[in-house]
């Protein structure tokens, strides 16, 4: 699903965020990405999202060399990847429903179809009864669940989550992780960046650790 070949990323500031990173994640895997802040977790995810481009090396996602994806291709490529952010990036001027519907609207789904899929996604994260509310009225955990619903509403093959439990207490974090595990069981590939070591140990999934822009362990499927 995701394959990095000797990927380095040096920012304009001269800081080398990733140096010669190789790893492989298979379709249907659920992988935790750990490391201190500044280890290169975010950069790695940005490279997969094409928010950044590698200085050298190849990023291959879903069998496609991302180097060749340009222009509008980037938009179409992103429709098949769901993203969950630490600060969930919800739009506070619209309802929960409209937030979750956004990826479908962007991809050109029909209104009736959108309603069905959004409700299915909201149902999965247990927020179906709050679809008409504005996100600002929800608790932190609920907001993050809306963010997750938005990430999976399009049934993407791949979901990236950048510190999805960063701001949540342990109980809520466990709840979110259970959700992720359920999506994984449905066949989605998940990559979750976190520095919550305890949590990753409990989940009993592959852990890939980064340090100073290099893969320390867990770069290949066991």
């Amino acid at each position: 699903m995701i394959r990095f070949h000797g990927v380095s990323k040096r920012y304009d500031t001269g800081q080398e965020a990733l140096s010669r990173v190789d790893f492989h994640i298979e379709r249907g895997e659920m992988v935790f990405l750990t490391g201190h802040s500044g280890a290169g977790k975010s950069t790695l995810m940005k490279l997969i999202m094409l928010m950044e481009r590698p200085t050298s090396g190849q990023v291959i996602v879903g069998g496609r060399n991302t180097e060749r994806i340009r222009g509008n291709g980037i938009a179409h490529y992103r429709r098949d990847i769901g993203v969950v952010f630490q600060n969930h990036q919800l739009l506070f001027d619209r309802s929960v429903f409209d937030n979750v519907a956004l990826p479908l609207q962007v991809a050109g789904f029909q209104t009736a179809d959108i309603g069905r899929r959004v409700r299915a996604a909201l149902d999965k994260v247990g927020l179906l009864h709050k679809e008409k509310l504005k996100p600002i009225t929800l608790s932190g955990g609920e907001q993050q669940r809306v963010g997750i619903a938005r990430a999976v509403v399009n049934k993407p093959a791949l979901v990236l989550a950048d510190e999805p439990t960063g701001n949540l207490d342990p109980d809520l974090s466990a709840e979110i992780m259970t959700l992720f595990r359920q999506f994984n069981e449905l066949g989605m590939t998940l990559m979750i960046a976190t520095h919550d070591i305890e949590l990753t140990q409990r989940m009993n999934k592959r852990v890939m650790s980064l340090e100073h822009g290099r893969v320390l362990a867990g770069g290949n499927p066991s």
Partner: peptide
């Protein structure tokens, strides 16, 4: 700006 960023991240084309 926020909205534009999110729309771009979930795959909105430039035209959109």
């Amino acid at each position: 700006r926020e909205e534009i960023l999110v729309v771009k991240l979930v795959g909105g084309t430039d035209a959109y």
